[in-house]
Amino acid sequence: LAAFGAAEAATTLKASHQFPGGKGDVRDEMVQMIAREVAAADVGLEIRVYPGASLVKAKEQWQAMLKGQIDITSFPLDYASGRHAAFGATLMPGLVKNHAHARRLNESPFMAEIKKEIEEAGVVVLADAWLAGGFGSKDKCILEPDDVQGLKARSAGATFAEMWAGAGASIINIPSNEVYSALQTGVAEATDTSSGSFVSFRLYEQLKCLTAPGENALWFMYEPVLMSKRSFDRLDEKQREALMEAAKKAEDYFAEESRKLDEELVATFEKAGVEVVTMTPEQAEMWREVARRTSYKSFAEQVPNGQELIDMALEVE
């Protein structure tokens, strides 16, 4: 009976993400790690991980967390930008230059503002995570804005789509699982996405040239591990401590591994015979110029303190 009582007392949390489970995906591993560490801490807390959007659809995770369907999620914050326009800044071209820069950004006033908005929505940030990405093309390498003139491009997010359009590309809107065949048949000629997706969708089979993140990347996305405040408040002191400690470990693990994602990207594409290039600071600045009159501008119009947010981010050395 005592054993039964203990089992009853244990709290079970549901953690959801959209990435393949148990196949070594770093983002999956980050969540699994939290689950393992918390279990090892033996504080009567169990985390069940639902990978591959097997419980709720990728874009619904924010809403599902607020509604109590899930408790924890590893979530591209930009997906919720339709409800909190400010979150659009976390997938904004040219704000983050490289992984070291991303770590410094986490402690900046810019991220403090973003996190304030996350918390006001009823959500706790367990661990920070930034993912790098790049551009891929079926034709010539994309380094300067002029290179995309007239290209049919598929973009991972709205802010990038606006920049592509500003540089003269025509934007097509197709779901991520159709990108491979769209590139194959020529419906799309270029795309931007995260390093992990470039590899997992096997885009190296279709692309001629890859613009890898390097030291002057344009493409960075904030994808923290989040938890609903209501679920968090329900935990006791010991459980919270164990959870935050596990999350810290996962955050450090991820910071280390996300760099490896980029290395793996370059290695995989080179092995497949794809030309791999990176941008110079000057080339990245040319893109930022385009972004200033497109994505930054419309962000500033949509979000009350939008211009401020962008300036705060750009100030981070």
């Binding site: 007239g150 934007i171 097509i172 809107n173």
Partner: peptide
């Protein structure tokens, strides 16, 4: 719009 005119198609999908 996309194929013949080579322009962006933004709203149609949604």
């Amino acid at each position: 719009v996309r194929y013949a005119l080579g322009q962006s198609a933004i709203w149609q999908n949604e």
